[in-house]
């Protein structure tokens, strides 16, 4: 990101669209504001959501995801959402039908990608073909999946560097039957816009239901462990052994502060002057956790 210092911001949902007309109803729905710090891409955000318009194509999509995730590294409870229109190879599917993709086939390389399908959802499901060039109707028989777009595989490829497979969702809305050159941008915005309330209600509910597991050691405990390690001049291996013993003790008994405090108070232990004293003190310390 040129000229932009990463902020200490925790976005919870990162949304990627290929086109501005796909992003427009989302920007309006959430009241996102343009972030002018980004020169290479159009980025819009509020406190919880950040949206980037990647521009069409697999490579552009991958670059867009990498750009944003490098600037704002996601945490384990954040979600990646790719929303966009797609073509369908079957004319029986009504336009406006919303799909959650369970399989992404990259036409250019023949590689498949699979987002985890762990969460219940109200949408249809299908595989999708991602291609660097638009797939036309006359080639519809050649595509191995029902849907076609130009970004999903690029989003997955870059997204998996920052997210786990259960954190990424690819939502596609059928806009045409592989005649994408004939679609008007206002129709795209309308198709996305009419489905945004349902999509956002689902993704928000999902995000709210996710909980981060808290670290085993509190900041105070980390401080105590660091202090003891420093005073005893523990080797890295000894520090690891101490942390493991303390972790087990805490998980079993709830607290180890008293053990460490009583050890620190013992006058004959600290400070250590040589390797021999260190070894003796370390053994004494480990006995506190036995």
């Amino acid at each position: 990101m040129h000229g932009v210092v990463p902020e200490d911001t925790d976005f919870m949902i990162m949304i990627f669209t290929a086109l501005y007309c796909e992003a427009k109803p989302i920007i309006r729905f959430f009241g996102l504001k343009k972030d002018t710090g980004h020169h290479l891409f159009q980025v819009f955000k509020n406190d919880d959501i950040i949206l980037l318009v990647t521009k069409p194509g697999i490579v552009n999509a991958a670059i867009g995801v990498t750009h944003l995730c490098s600037a704002y590294p996601p945490n384990p409870s954040d979600l990646l959402l790719n929303i966009g229109i797609c073509g369908a190879g079957d004319r029986n599917i009504p336009t406006g039908t919303v799909y959650l993709c369970n399989k992404i086939y990259e036409m250019d390389t023949g590689i498949y990608f699979y987002p985890d399908m762990i969460f219940a959802h109200p949408f249809e499901e299908s595989g999708i073909v991602s291609s660097s060039n638009p797939v036309s109707e006359k080639h519809s028989a050649d595509i191995p999946e029902l849907l076609a777009d130009m970004e999903a595989s690029g989003i997955y490829r870059a997204g998996i560097l920052f997210f786990q497979p259960h954190q990424m969702f690819f939502i596609k809305i059928v806009s045409d039957y592989l005649q994408s050159d004939k679609i008007d941008s206002s129709i795209v915005s309308e198709l996305i816009g009419q489905n945004i309330p349902e999509i956002t209600a689902w993704i928000t509910r999902l995000h709210d239901g996710m909980t981060n597991s808290s670290p085993v050691f509190s900041p105070e405990e980390e401080k105590m462990l660091a202090e003891v390690s420093k005073n005893l001049r523990l080797t890295v291996s000894m520090q690891n052994q101490l942390r493991q013993a303390a972790r087990y003790y805490k998980l079993q008994h709830g607290n180890f502060s008293a053990n460490l405090s009583s050890f620190i108070k013992k006058e004959n232990v600290l400070p250590v002057k040589n390797k021999h004293e260190r070894k003796r003190a370390f053994e004494q310390l480990m006995r506190e956790f036995a």
């Binding site: 384990p76 399908m117 969460f119 954190q167 509910r205 239901g209 996710m210 597991s213």
Partner: peptide, 16 residues
């Protein structure tokens, strides 16, 4: 992230 609300999840073997 290690735990999830149960009602958000698909039932076991929802996908084969």
């Amino acid at each position: 992230m290690n735990s999830l609300c149960v009602n958000l999840l698909n039932p076991p073997f929802s996908h084969i």
